[in-house]
Structures are given as C-alpha cells and as structure tokens.
C-alpha cells in the first residue's frame, strides 16, 4: 500500500461518511459540517492521486487551495443564513427534512 493509495482511499471513506452524515442528520449545522467533510474528502482524493514518491502534482494542489476558499465562501454564507433563519423563528433543521418528516 502506497501513501498515495492510502490517502485516496481515506478520502473516499470521508466522502461516504460525510454523505451518510448529510442524509441522516437534518440539523443545519451538521449538514454544513458534512458538506465540509465531503469537500475535504474530495480534495484528499484529488491530491493523493497526483502523489508519487514524495512529490504531489502542483496542479491539483493549486486547485485544492481554490476549492478550499470556495468551500469556505459557501460555509460562511450558509452559517450566516442559518443564523438568520433561526432568528426568524425557523429553528435549526433543514426545511427539506422538516417537510418530509
């Protein structure tokens, strides 16, 4: 087992785990957490698959940095929106799950 493969498989595990968390927990903060876990899993797959012999492909590295900033932007907006929604009396759950349940 090479480190490349190990980390890529860990990334796959994080994606599966994050998706499971997203689907089974409907609190909005948990969904944003799950989004970030899935995101870092995707990045880990990206980086690890370009890694061999101690060198990681700089193109994925740069794109991952871009991706991290994009994920942060989305998280920041989501956090602000969740806070406003709660202030308006909406509670802390994803409206989608609420309607379904």
């Amino acid at each position: 087992m090479t480190p490349s493969l190990l980390y890529a498989l860990t990334g796959a595990g994080l994606i599966a785990l994050g998706l499971y968390g997203f689907v089974t927990r409907s609190h909005l903060i948990r969904r944003v957490l799950a989004f970030n876990v899935i995101g870092s899993g995707v990045f880990l797959v990206f980086g690890a698959l370009g890694h061999e012999g101690g060198i990681t492909d700089p193109v994925p590295q740069a794109l991952i940095i871009t991706g991290i900033v994009v994920a942060l932007s989305l998280t920041a907006f989501a956090a602000a929106m969740i806070a406003r929604y709660a202030e308006d009396g909406g509670g802390g759950l994803d409206p989608d799950a609420e309607d379904a349940g």
Binding site: I15, F22, L28, R31, V32, F35, I38, G39, V42, V45, F46, L49, G50, V59, P60, G67, L74, F77, A78, M81, I82, R84, Y85, D88, G90, D94, P95, D96
Partner: peptide
Amino acid sequence: LKAALRYFMVALLGSLSYLLGAVLIY
C-alpha cells in the same frame, strides 16, 4: 429564507458531486 436554505442545501451537495467527477477525470 426557508426556500433559499432548502435550495442551498441541495446546491451544496450538487456542487460536491460535480467536483468529485471533475477530480476523477483529472
């Protein structure tokens, strides 16, 4: 806000799915 939040959550998963596909292709 309620409708927008619902949209947002779907959009978040949709983006990640797209990104994962792009990553595998690279």
